[in-house]
Nucleic acid binder design. Structure first.
Lengths: 178, 178
DNA sequence: CTTTTATATAGGATTAATCTAATATTAGCA
DNA sequence: TGCTAATATTAGATTAATCCTATATAAAAG
């Protein structure tokens, strides 16, 4: 599971609690990349400890629940590096809109166009979100190795949205002039 | 759930058994659009009957298990048409490769490039699959309404793969000349 | 003075997807 | 003669994702 390895990757950069992972990683930079909710993160941390890939120091606090700070073990780092090099199968994308379009023949043209326009708006919004993330551009000589890789990931996210927007426009046109 | 509505859409074109749905729809034209396995299809058919959206005629066969032929009810058609017009949320795409790239900083360049090349090959393969599906092109005046819509869906699938391939080439280049 | 936000974790429940095995018969192939 | 593929359905099990609730307290906001 990639979530486990994403968590290993994050903990390797810095030891953290489940709460930290959620609020400063999965709600921020990784949000558009690999969404995960609190329950998933805590349960995955438990599994990582079971596997021996992370350890957990409990910091006792009187005023609130104890903090459990997780860090990666040697075995965890080995596992991460090994996983990073394994070819992963292409994800299966299930797109409700495509099912709708596939069976839309009995809808009037305006109804189909309305559907496509709603998607177009949603895609524009997502593109704007991606573009608001600040990272050095690809040509930038001062960018670190990490930054280049993160930029590449962001670059795909942006291109993906642009492809959608383009296609939606083509589709609206095709249905209009049909 | 879109699977239920995809099945309604298919049954509306023609009444069918669960086996037919699997072998002549979900393994063929819908395969790259909404993969579904046999267990899911049968269970969804049960749910559709419960909901009153389909009915089921049992054809008794002596030599093999009875065929259960499903067809859509009035209520089912109403439900489908209503669903076809509802804005669906954008799917969340979880791409293991992006997690890998995001944390790939400690890998040597050749390892990263190898990973990207494997993806490139897989994407080329998928693109070829999409391109092998025969449907009238978008400009074709003789195309039916159904065919135009199906062409549009296919068009997106193709563009999606092309975007990937382009991006993978850029990424390989960026890492090489880093 | 009350409500919200932040800190921090645990665990039950549900849905969707995937895998697996069981059942039963015919037809074709080697 | 024995094996495999095709036809057709049922059901158990597991994993992943999502939601929701519970617990506990401090600080800030209104």
């Amino acid at each position: 599971m990639s979530l486990a390895h994403a968590i290993l990757g994050l903990l390797q950069q810095e030891e953290m609690t489940g709460y930290d992972l959620k609020t400063s990683c999965f709600d921020q930079c990784i949000a558009h990349l690999w969404p995960a909710d609190q329950a998933q993160i805590y349960r995955t941390l438990d599994k990582l400890v079971e596997q021996g890939w992370t350890t957990c120091k409990v910091e006792i606090q009187r005023d609130r629940p104890n903090r459990k700070v997780y860090s990666v073990t040697e075995a965890g780092i080995a596992e991460l590096i090994q996983w990073l090099q394994c070819h992963q199968p292409l994800p299966k994308v299930r797109e409700p809109l495509l099912i709708q379009l596939f069976f839309a023949a009995q809808l009037p043209n305006e109804a189909i166009i309305q559907l496509l326009k709603q998607q177009l708006a949603a895609r524009h919004e997502k593109l704007a979100e991606c573009e608001s993330i600040e990272l050095p551009t690809l040509g930038d000589q001062s960018a670190s190795r990490e930054q280049i890789l993160q930029r590449l990931v962001l670059e795909l996210a942006i291109r993906r949205e642009e492809t959608y927007i383009d296609w939606l426009k083509t589709a609206i046109d095709a249905i209009r002039h049909q």
